[in-house]
């Protein structure tokens, strides 16, 4: 995702914002900086990129704290993410065996109305430990409905 943001930045590494474009992209993704803080991007020549970047960042608002960005239209509810999820496997015996979690089970992901939803993102390994610790739900999703950002 950083790469996609980077593509919309001027790419001049002019340091006018105080850092390289790549670092600036990372701060945009984390939400700590906004596009307005890149002076070059405000020039008319970059109007298209400005709009594209705004749209891109708008789409990222849907992502959860754990970094999950779920596209429900792509999900077919196969449930693979539920049983590869590190937290689910470690804490929910039903998920571990391939069954759907019972209604009271504490799990990160669930399939509701045929689509995956984050039942409790605070349990996700990415929040509990580190974002680079686990990306299994994304890696094993056959339809690419889950993207981790």
């Amino acid at each position: 995702m950083i790469q996609k943001i980077l593509e919309q930045l001027p790419g001049t590494d002019c340091q006018m914002c105080g850092m390289s474009c790549a670092d600036f992209a990372a701060f945009l993704l984390s939400g700590d900086l906004s596009p307005q803080e890149c002076p070059v991007l405000q020039e008319d020549a970059y109007a298209d990129r400005r709009e594209a970047l705004a749209a891109l960042l708008e789409s990222l608002k849907a992502r959860a704290k754990s970094g999950h960005l779920i596209d429900p239209d792509k999900c077919n509810g196969c449930g693979i993410c539920l049983i590869v999820c590190e937290y689910n496997v470690a804490n929910d015996p039903e998920s571990r065996r391939g069954k759907g979690p019972s209604k009271d089970a504490k799990v990160v992901l669930r399939i509701v109305n045929g689509r995956v939803v984050l039942a409790d993102e605070t349990l996700c390994t990415r929040l509990l430990q580190a974002a680079d610790k686990c990306s299994k739900c994304q890696d094993h999703c056959p339809t690419q409905a889950i993207v981790l950002i």
Partner: peptide, 29 residues
């Protein structure tokens, strides 16, 4: 024939399913 589908029913209508895939949920809903 998954047997682990949980559902919320409002009288004679399913309003929510859990664990059903997209095809199964469509049938229930």
């Amino acid at each position: 024939l998954c047997d682990d589908i949980d559902a919320v029913i409002d009288e004679d209508r399913v309003v929510e399913t859990a664990n059903a895939c997209r095809w199964g949920a469509a049938r229930f809903l």
